[in-house]
Amino acid sequence: MRYGLLVEGAPYSSQAAHSALRFATALVARGHRLESVFFYHDGVYNAARLAAPPQDEPHLYDAWCSLHAEHGTQLQVCIAAALRRGLLDPREADRHGKSGHSVESPFELTGLGQLVDLGQAVDRLVTFAP
């Protein structure tokens, strides 16, 4: 089956992102296709490229990136939710006159319309909320 995930919880603040990642890993291990993970609400913090968790904890940011590298899963971030929380890619940082960026590839800032499209494109869209 083709799956999409909606992640609404910030990393390390709630179980949502951890559970979503475990579900994602299980999906692809069972031969399903995970098209995209869409990050919304506080879930957008999963895209923060500067995340530096202690070494004895799961590195969620790196794990999302691995999911993209190994399975081609898109990592889409709601741009409106991201910008107001300080998550900007190089283009948005430049546009808003900021000296650095906090989001970069493979995460991509995109609109909520992409979430609607994802919901139509996949067989199952599963929400992970705190």
Partner: peptide
């Protein structure tokens, strides 16, 4: 999210 979906 609801408004965007409706607009689509």
């Amino acid at each position: 999210a609801a408004l965007v979906a409706a607009a689509f």
